[in-house]
Design a protein around this nucleic acid. Structure first.
Lengths: 211, 211
DNA sequence: CCATTGAATATTGTATACAGAATACCGCCC
DNA sequence: GGGCGGTATTCTGTATACAATATTCAATGG
C-alpha cells in the first residue's frame, strides 16, 4: 500500500523533531520563510503545520508577529498535565483487562528505562512508549489520538527537566507498582497508583520550573 | 482597543455557523473554492479554517479529495461524549465553591430552557450556556478552551436529534438536581448527578442515531 | 550620551498561479 | 441497453506573488 502524506504532516513532524531535539528552544521565534527554505518546501504547508502546532500549545501565534516556541511555564504545564492525566486515567478505565503479554512488555520497557541513564531522548521515548503501551487496549480511538497529541506538551517539559536535573526520579518504581497491581487484577489500586504517578510527575516538573 | 482578527478565524466561525444552521448537512462535500467565493476571501484562510475543523472532528479530510462534513456516527459520538464528559467533570472538580449568584444564574438558564419549546437552536445554545456557566469558575483555562472546542461535536448531534425527536428529555430536571446538590454544598452528589446527566444524554443520542 | 523618529528592510497574512490527481462525461464495444 | 476505457474538466495540494504590518537601525535632537 503506497501512501501519499501531505507535506504539512511531514513539516509538522519535522518541526516537532527540531523542538524536541533542543534546536528551537523555548521563546525562539519561528519564521515560516526560514523553515520553508530549510525544508525545501513552500511556505504554505509550513504555515499549515505551524498553525496546527499553535492550536496544540507547542507554539504561540501572535497576529502579525508570526510564530514562536511557547516558553516553559509552570501553570501551563500543570494545566496540561491535569488534562492529560485525567484522560489517561479514563483510557485506562476504558481498557478491558490488560493481557499478561502486554504487562510483560511494560516490564521490559521499564527495565530498559531503568537501564538508560545518560540518553535523555531515549528516556522520554521510553516513558511515552510505556504509557502508550499501557493504554493501547483502550477502544476509544479518539481518546487515544487526543492523548497522543497532548503528550507533545509534557514532552518539552520533561526534556528540559531531564537535561538539567538528571532524571524523573522514581518513575520506574511507579511503573512497576502499577504493573504489579494490574497483574493482581486490582484495578482500583492500579488506578490510584497511576493517579499518584501523574501527580508526582507534575509536581516535580512544576517545582523545577519555578526553581 | 482595536483588534484585527485573522480571516482564518472568521472563516472558521462562518463555516461552523453554516454547519450548525443545517446548511452543510453531514456528508456534504465542502469545496474550498466555493466557500472562498461565497465568503469573499481567498482559498488560503479558508483552507486553514477547514484544516482546523478537520482536526477538531467536525470535518473529514481525505488526501486529494478535499473536505466533507463528517457523517453522524454513534461510535464517534460516544467517544467524543466520553471525553467531554470526563473533562467537564474534571472542570467541575477543579472549580472551587460555586457562588450562589452563579447557581441562581444556572436556575434562570434552566427555566428559560424549560420554557423554550420549538426553537432548536435556542435550546442548544442554552444547554451549552448552562454547562459553560457551571464551569466558568474552573481556573484551568486550557481545560476550559478544550471543552469549548470539544463541544462542537455533540452540538451537531444534539441539533440533528432535537430537530427530529423533539427535545433532550429530562435535561432540565437533571440540571435542577445538580444545582440543588451544589446548593447543599454536596459536591459528591453533584458530581454523581453530573455524570449521570452526561451518561443519559449520550445514551439517548446514541440510541437515536442507531434507530 | 540617550531617547526618538523615520526610512529601509524583513516578515507576515492573504491572494493568485500552477501542476497533478480525482471525478465526470462521453463514445465505444459487448 | 449496460459496462468499459479514454479524455476533459474540476478540484485539490503546493508554490509563488503581493500588500500591509512589524522590526531594525541609523540619523537627529535633546
Amino acid at each position: 500500500m503506497i501512501t501519499r502524506t501531505p507535506l504539512r504532516d511531514q513539516v509538522y513532524d519535522a518541526v516537532l523533531a527540531r523542538i524536541n531535539r533542543g534546536d528551537l528552544p523555548p521563546a525562539r521565534r519561528v519564521r515560516d520563510t526560514d523553515l520553508a527554505a530549510e525544508l525545501g518546501v513552500s511556505r504554505t504547508p509550513v504555515r499549515e503545520a505551524l498553525l496546527r502546532l499553535s492550536r496544540e500549545g507547542v507554539l504561540e501565534a501572535d497576529m502579525g508577529r508570526g510564530f514562536s516556541v511557547r516558553p516553559l511555564d509552570a501553570t501551563e504545564m500543570r494545566e496540561g498535565g491535569a488534562i492529560l492525566s485525567t484522560l489517561e486515567r479514563l483510557a485506562l478505565d476504558l481498557s478491558g483487562d490488560i493481557p499478561s503479554e502486554r504487562l510483560a512488555h511494560l516490564g521490559e520497557i521499564d527495565r530498559e528505562l531503568a537501564a538508560t541513564r545518560g540518553d535523555v531522548d531515549r528516556c522520554i521515548d521510553l516513558d511515552e512508549e510505556w504509557h502508550r503501551t499501557l493504554l493501547e487496549g483502550c477502544p476509544n480511538l479518539r481518546l487515544r489520538a487526543m492523548i497522543s497529541t497532548l503528550w507533545q506538551v509534557p514532552r518539552r517539559y520533561m526534556r528540559a527537566f531531564l537535561r538539567e536535573a538528571g532524571r524523573v526520579s522514581l518513575s520506574t518504581q511507579h511503573h512497576a507498582r502499577i504493573v504489579e497491581a494490574l497483574r493482581r487484577n486490582d484495578r482500583e489500586a492500579a488506578m490510584q497508583r497511576f493517579s499518584h504517578h501523574w501527580q508526582r510527575g507534575i509536581e516535580e516538573l512544576g517545582a523545577w520550573i519555578e526553581r
